[in-house]
Design a protein around this nucleic acid. Structure first.
Lengths: 125, 125
DNA sequence: CCGGATCCTTGCCGATACTG
DNA sequence: CAGTATCGGCAAGGATCCGG
């Protein structure tokens, strides 16, 4: 029933890769994920420290995004079996690679700060 | 009434800049905006061409994000007063600068493709 | 061909409460 | 301290129509 004509295994692979790429992009290209990655940097931070570091993020969004980053292998989670529990997060190598590009985005923001501010004022008039 | 103690004009400026930076980040760090920027590249595309280029975007999201990019001075909109109307979009220089970093993000995705795929499978088990 | 406006659905996100 | 579960409000996003 769902059989498709003009379809090769290679084409199917390409579609799979495409949809995965899109999925990764959707995961990563969101405000909170990028801010968390930026906050982590080269450091190792606890959950509560991250919560303070990432201005305005809620408990829920933080856990949610941390799970997502862990799932994609961008961040690592280590639980120290003490009481009270101590959970630490750090970027993996791929995560640190991604951080490089996030850094560039931040630089970009600052470099074009006044251009953007001006453009907005003109547009809003 | 709303006067704050321990507040200098400099501190106020910093807070303004911070919130603006965050705002720009929120605008730009979203899936559709980045995909549009990537699709535009060095080219000039019509609305309808963009709609085909950016797989799965709706009419509404496209206009919405194009307005946003225009407002921030990242894209330029030119209307040719023909009938039927012809509207073209192209990246400004700041927009092309940002595109560089988006390109890097795409490269990153492909470079770590298998790592991510593997990590996901392990995590989902 | 483009884009604004409207209606309606979906799912994001915050708040809260409860476990280990 | 860290994480999960649940609920509810509200904004994001899709479908459609109309107007330039």
């Amino acid at each position: 029933m769902t059989k498709q004509v003009n379809d090769s295994p290679e084409a199917a692979d390409l579609r799979r890769a495409d949809s995965l790429a899109r999925e990764i992009f959707s995961d990563v290209a969101n405000k909170w994920a990028l801010l968390i990655i930026e906050a982590l940097g080269e450091r190792t931070l606890r959950f509560s420290e991250l919560r303070e570091e990432v201005e305005g993020i809620s408990h829920k969004m933080l856990t949610q995004n941390l799970r997502m980053l862990e799932r994609n292998g961008l961040a690592e989670r280590t639980v120290h079996p003490t009481v009270p529990p101590r959970v630490e997060y750090t970027l993996t190598q791929p995560g640190r690679d991604l951080r490089e590009t996030v850094d560039r985005m931040c630089e970009w923001t600052h470099r074009h700060f006044s251009h953007i501010e001006d453009s907005r004022q003109r547009f809003d008039a």
